[in-house]
Each structure stands twice: as C-alpha cells, then as structure tokens.
C-alpha cells in the first residue's frame, strides 16, 4: 500500500498548517508556561511558509516535496523547533529518495527522522522534548502495521501526558528544573498535530 504520494504529501502539509493555525494560541500558552511563549508563533509561521513554497510548485517525488519542506522549516522557523523539524523532514526525504513511499519505506523514514532529531538535539527519551513523541511513534511502528492510525495517535497522546510530570533536562524548559514539572511539553504537542494531520490524509480516499 502506498502511504504518501506527492499530492498526499502536499495535503499533509496543508493539514498541518491548518492545525498549527488553529492551535497557535494553545501552543504559545504551553510554551509560556515552561518556555518563552513563541512555539505556536514559530509553528504557524513555519508551515505558512511551507505552503507558500510548495503549494504551487510541481514535484516529481514525495522526497522532493519533503526536502522543500525541510529547507523551508530550517530557513523560516529558527529557534529550537526549526532545526529539529527541519532535520526530521530532511532525513525522511533522504530515506525516501528514489522510492515509492509504502509501509516499509515510511517506517524506515520515520526511524531516520527520529535518529535525526536525536543527533541534532542530543536528546534522550524522557527529557521532556518532542523527541519523546517521535521516539514512541517509531517504537509503535516497529511493532504494529501502519493501519491503526487511531492507536498511533493514542501513543502520541499518552506520551504528551507523560511529559507533564517529567523534569525537563533539554531545551528551554530545563532552566526551570523542578518547576518544569506539571506542564506538558509544547513541542510534543506540535508533533502530535503533525501525526494527526498525517492520519487525516492517509485515511481519506483521494
């Protein structure tokens, strides 16, 4: 089964943009609690720029679209989330190069993205960052077929919830030590939206 085509990938980004716009304030509020209050603004700007870039561009492959996405996020977001998401999509793109994106390729691409985030952010599991969500998604995909997107989103949501009581040791929230507990991680939440958007896209008929 083909999971992503050029069209579907564009649609994925469109859905992400919608979710980031709708949840801009929520993400910003989460970031105000344990960070600097710009995460929603960063995500909204980033995916707005992504759509400006890709909407009317013709692409041959999914890998090409995702490379464009990665470059745009890297050049337009900044902050911590820019390089991290930029790297994630770039690694996916590299893994998909010259391939059709079926289940196997998709799973391998997510795994690569997770490695990329880890490398770029020097993050480990349990440090209260978006790496937690990506890592759990990759673990889930290692065990399960990609059909059950509902279950995958549940994994995301549980992970977000797990970040609540963690003490951050990476990213801006780490400056708060103990006081970072009691709030969920904003980057984990935006990662959730990325997978939620993906679900919407893959579950719709073309």
């Amino acid at each position: 089964m083909i999971i992503l085509t050029v069209e579907k990938t564009k649609k994925w980004m469109r859905e992400i943009q919608k979710l980031m716009e709708e949840n801009k304030e929520q993400l910003t509020t989460l970031d105000q609690a344990i960070g600097d209050g710009d995460h929603g603004i960063n995500m909204e700007r980033g995916f707005r720029e992504v759509m400006l870039k890709i909407e009317d561009t013709d692409y041959d492959t999914v890998a090409d679209v995702l490379k464009s996405v990665a470059m745009t996020l890297t050049a337009k977001v900044g902050g911590a989330s820019g390089p991290l998401y930029g790297t994630a999509f770039l690694k996916m793109s590299m893994e998909m190069q010259g391939k059709e994106v079926d289940e196997t390729v998709f799973k391998a691409a997510v795994k690569e993205a997770v490695e990329g985030i880890k490398m770029r952010g020097k993050a480990e599991m349990g440090e209260k960052t978006l790496y937690d969500v990506w890592n759990q998604v990759a673990n889930f995909l290692e065990e399960e077929p990609v059909e059950d997107w509902g279950a995958l989103l549940e994994v995301c949501q549980a992970t977000i919830e797990d970040t609540r009581e963690m003490q951050a040791t990476k990213g801006r929230a780490s400056y708060l030590s103990e006081r970072s507990k009691g709030h969920v991680d904003p980057g984990s939440m935006s990662s959730f939206y990325i997978f939620q958007a993906l679900m919407t896209v893959v579950e719709t008929e073309d």
Partner: peptide, 11 residues
C-alpha cells in the same frame, strides 16, 4: 537577527 525570542536560521 531572529524573530522575537527565536534564534535566527542557519542561512
């Protein structure tokens, strides 16, 4: 110069 409270981008 980056956006408000946001690191500038690599480019």
């Amino acid at each position: 110069v980056g956006e408000v409270f946001t690191s500038p981008t690599p480019d």
